[in-house]
Design a binder for these strands. Sequence first.
DNA 1: CCTACCGATCGGTAGG
DNA 2: CCTACCGATCGGTAGG
Lengths: 194, 194
Amino acid sequence: MLKTKKSVKRELILAEAAKLFKDRGYSGTSMRDLAGQVGMEAASMYNHIKSKDELLDTICFRISDTYISQLREIEHTASPYSDKIKALVRLHIQLMVEDSAAVSVANHDWKYLPEPRLTEFKQARKTYEKGFAALIEAGIAAGEFRPVNASVALFTVLSAVRWVELWYRPGRGLTAQELENNIITVLLGGLEQH
Amino acid sequence: MLKTKKSVKRELILAEAAKLFKDRGYSGTSMRDLAGQVGMEAASMYNHIKSKDELLDTICFRISDTYISQLREIEHTASPYSDKIKALVRLHIQLMVEDSAAVSVANHDWKYLPEPRLTEFKQARKTYEKGFAALIEAGIAAGEFRPVNASVALFTVLSAVRWVELWYRPGRGLTAQELENNIITVLLGGLEQH
DNA sequence: CCTACCGATCGGTAGG
DNA sequence: CCTACCGATCGGTAGG
């Protein structure tokens, strides 16, 4: 019972931390800022968390774990490579729309992770990128995709999805579905008419 | 003579500041870190600069001025819209390759600008985005581009170019030319075969 | 361009 | 969960 209440408070702190880290950056956010947002004194938060570093660590690795487990699932489906790539693009957009603060922190503030977690995070990201690139290369080998440089295609696709976090506001004209469809059209079909 | 030497030193400080801000963020970089990189004491830098804020301001507005003046030039050329978009994509990639630290700071740390410069920077960015989006819409109206949502296409293109700053290292397999050509192929032609 | 230093704020702990 | 407080570090200034 007590344990449950504490973990609820801990989740609240994590959620507010993600928002503040997104808006002001990890270094730009003080534990007193965060405490104010949560509604307690800075010292009191240390009953729920170990340190500022630990907040960043939890936020970053939850996101990277999600990406990697979803990639594994998609790898094991039997469908065309273009469908696999589309599914990954939709995954990125959905996560960004659902949990934009945490995704943003994992994208920008991971560099403040202290060792050895910094190295572990970079390795997780590399694992994900290699799996994604392998799908693109397989798609090229299968004749589904143009013979572009797979790394360039990978990063073009991955990054094309990242400004969603900066400008997309749900309910301002465009639904998440329309957003997905438009981005996939540009990335898979290209801007030009054929 | 003295004036020249001072401005040379000032440019050195600006260049090192851009590198540190890129690597550690604006808030994560102390004036003592920067002084160490430049080779003087923190207090001595204030003979060349006014404040830490002023460094950020100069870096950010130099970049936004460059983008806007180049956009104006491209707008006034008489060429197909797809060529105009390609020229803008090449401009982004070239600036990123040539001056990746400053571009990175203008992309990520502008939010630490103090008012009223923060508002001015946002306005400059909006001006650029509107000009870029207008070219995409004109291209759609002219039948050159698919009828996608122009805002989505704009941000997909703009952001597709941003991971260049994170992973591209000159002379590691890919030249800047090959990079440009591959990115343009994916964005304009699409990943899928047609 | 340096030494010496300012007040403010940082992440975190002690003790209740 | 709070008050009180720690040593460290921050951006910046005075004065030479």
